[in-house]
Computed example of a mutant assay.
Amino acid sequence: MTAEFGNGAASAFSAHAARALDHCERAEAPQMLLDAIGSVVPYAFAMSVVYHRDGPPDHVVDTFTGRAAKQAMQLYLEGTYILNPVYNAYLAGLRAGVHRLRELAPDNYFSSDHYRQFKVRRQDDEELGYLTHGWPAGMEEVVIAIELPQGDLGEISLYRQASRGGFAETDCALLQAVEPLVGAVYRRIWQHRPRRARQGGRASPLDHLLEDFGKGKLSPRECEVAHMILKGHSGESIARNLGISITTVKTHRQNLYAKLGLATQQELFSLLIRSLQEKDALLPERR
């Protein structure tokens, strides 16, 4: 432990972490690990999922209470996870560590109205600009990312009310200090869960979410640009990430719009939604 902890917090964290490790094969182990984290950095609520490149995420644990919040968690697992910057950062190669959610979200994230078809609603005061229906509002989120075998990624997300200050830099520093041990315990817990967790999951027709979108109609570079637009990147961000000029980005965007018979970014989002629904990748909006 570092000097930043204090004896009480260090003892509580060690005790909870050891308990989770000793009982890593039990269903309660993930909650024990959350208890260990909460003894160092208290949170309003927390959740954890494991992301895969070949299907939807597995639910590990959450501290949500109430029917609406539990339903929101289910909606997330069924579809809205594909909009989450953590998931998209995972597909782009996110490594283990502590991350503020707003640091993972690309600029211009979720600026169009396509959110309505993903069982989410526009919420300008949210970090992402949207909220899954039923998800607790007004929260700031900090993520502990944990690298797992077979290319999977564990996410532990902690939430606090943004109006009460959210997470301070000292909180993030404490999480960074315990992150290696948290990751080690999480991996031990996950060793006892993958086969059981995946057997009950609904197989996803998506392969890396956008891999098939635009294939056969667009060039490889045009597909890259289309995928980044769909993930919320601005022209400047695309140019920066792909190492090309903004003029070249604009040319690729014009060409891919023409090839797909589109005129606007909103039409591009709508085309993605239709393709996902045709593959049964998203459930239709419940009325």
Rank of each mutant, 00 (worst) to 15 (best):
P180A: 01
G97I: 10
R221S: 13
L206T: 10
A162V: 06
E267I: 10
I146K: 04
V225H: 03
D62R: 03
Q117Y: 13
T248M: 14
E224P: 06
G66C: 00
E141H: 10
D62V: 04
A145S: 15
A145Y: 11
R102Y: 04
L271D: 01
G93Y: 03
R95G: 11
L276S: 02
L282G: 08
E211D: 13
I244M: 15
L101W: 01
T247Y: 11
R102F: 01
T2L: 05
L206F: 13
T80G: 02
E147H: 08
L230C: 09
L94Y: 13
A10W: 00
P205C: 09
H208C: 06
M1H: 07
P57G: 12
G154R: 07
Y130W: 11
I146H: 00
G200M: 06
E211F: 08
H52W: 09
L33F: 03
D125W: 07
V60Q: 07
R26S: 14
A18T: 02
F269C: 13
L104V: 02
E169L: 08
R122H: 11
G183A: 04
M228Y: 08
A46F: 03
F64T: 04
M73H: 06
V86L: 11
Y130C: 08
Y51P: 11
G154Q: 06
D62E: 08
A145Q: 12
K217T: 03
R286L: 15
F13D: 00
G243I: 05
